[in-house]
């Protein structure tokens, strides 16, 4: 594989094409717009790709629902207020188990907030619907992972039929870098058509009897837990002898790694636990670690959305100290992380 000089947006777009996506429906919003424009550029010369700039994110999301029900891979990309509107369609995808793929380019919130960066859309990505949040959410930390995780998101969506999200941000998407795009897993088949010629389907998302919905949700939960055993992923970095373990996801995870290398040089035994799938969460790996190390330091560009996920998953019989650096909607530098850990380990 030869290296290419690409932006994060270009990498994600290419990954969607390579994953076998045929349709994109989208509404422009910074910092995700370039995925739409890059896709439209690609569609100019590739007759297999179609696109539609819809009237809003609601229509984009439901058009994706329609396209996947017809059996084709389709996706949208959105951010911030658009991620809020997208919940309507994502909730239908939750209820009907539709392999809808959404690329979320997090920006600062609430409201219109800021337009480039945050890690504040974790809750929306996982729990934005009017149900339990049985969604698959990947959080890439490098441009290489933008590619591999987008491919994984499509595969997971079509294999397990849960709506699936690539949760990223404008910093990573706007990064331009030499990158080798490689992914050696085969694409899941996209042509599993709900509506086959001879098999008439009647599909609902509303139930008249409470027990019917209850049973459907039990089935979904069973499938979700089974799926979780197969795809849950996390990265552990220099944790073998660590007293302190930083927990970060996405781009902050990459900064934490660089900080750990610096801290290790001054003799501080610190490591990193980075959930790659925020949903399903790597609960077992987290708890194994919690039983072994002295302290978790959660570092994220939100007021504590990752912390809440961690606390929710933590085995309550384990007593572990939790410290944190919470900086909603601003980037976190390597130096800040070094300083924070230095302060703690004094």
């Amino acid at each position: 594989m030869k290296k290419q000089f690409l932006t994060g947006h270009q990498i994600v777009t290419q990954a969607c094409i390579d994953a076998g996506a045929k349709h994109m429906f989208g509404y422009p919003i910074t910092p995700g717009t370039e995925i739409l424009t890059n896709w439209i550029d690609a569609a100019q010369t590739n007759p297999e790709l179609t696109q539609l700039q819809t009237e809003d994110e609601i229509a984009a999301g439901f058009a994706v629902c329609g396209a996947v029900m017809a059996g084709n891979k389709a996706f949208t990309a959105t951010a911030g207020p658009g991620t809020v509107l997208m919940q309507d369609a994502m909730s239908m995808a939750d209820g009907m188990r539709l392999p809808v793929v959404v690329i979320i380019a997090q920006r600062g919130g609430p409201s219109s907030g800021t337009v480039i960066y945050s890690q504040q859309e974790v809750n929306l990505a996982i729990h934005g619907g009017n149900g339990e949040g049985m969604r698959i959410v990947y959080s890439p930390s490098t441009v290489e992972e933008l590619y591999t995780h987008t491919r994984k998101v499509f595969n997971a969506a079509w294999k397990y039929r849960f709506p699936s999200v690539l949760l990223t941000d404008g910093f990573l998407l706007k990064t331009t870098q030499d990158v080798e795009l490689s992914f050696d897993t085969k694409n899941e088949k996209g042509d599993i058509t709900i509506f086959e010629q001879n098999k008439k389907q009647h599909i609902r998302n509303i139930y008249t009897v409470e027990e019917e919905l209850y049973e459907e949700l039990q089935r979904q939960k069973k499938d979700f837990d089974k799926m979780a055993l197969e795809i849950t992923e996390s990265e552990e970095y220099k944790i073998e002898d660590a007293d302190i373990v930083i927990i970060s996801h996405g781009i902050v995870g990459a900064a934490a790694k660089a900080a750990i290398d610096i801290l290790r040089e001054s003799g501080i035994s610190v490591g990193l636990f980075r959930p790659i799938t925020l949903s399903p969460f790597p609960t077992d790996a987290l708890n194994t670690l919690a039983g072994r190390v002295k302290k978790f330091v959660i570092i994220e560009s939100s007021m504590g959305q990752l912390r809440d996920l961690v606390k929710q998953e933590l085995d309550t019989s384990i007593a572990i100290k939790i410290d944190g650096l919470y900086k909603p909607a601003v980037g976190i530098s390597v130096e800040e992380i070094v300083e924070k850990i230095n302060l703690i380990s004094k």
Binding site: A63, G66, V68, M69, G71, A89, Q201, I203
Partner: peptide, 22 residues
């Protein structure tokens, strides 16, 4: 015939997507 429910107000957008794919 093949039939599915959507959400309140969302059937047109869904069928636009369906038609694009088929």
């Amino acid at each position: 015939i093949n039939t599915f429910q959507t959400h309140h107000g969302r059937v047109v957008a869904t069928m636009v997507g369906y038609k694009k794919a088929k």
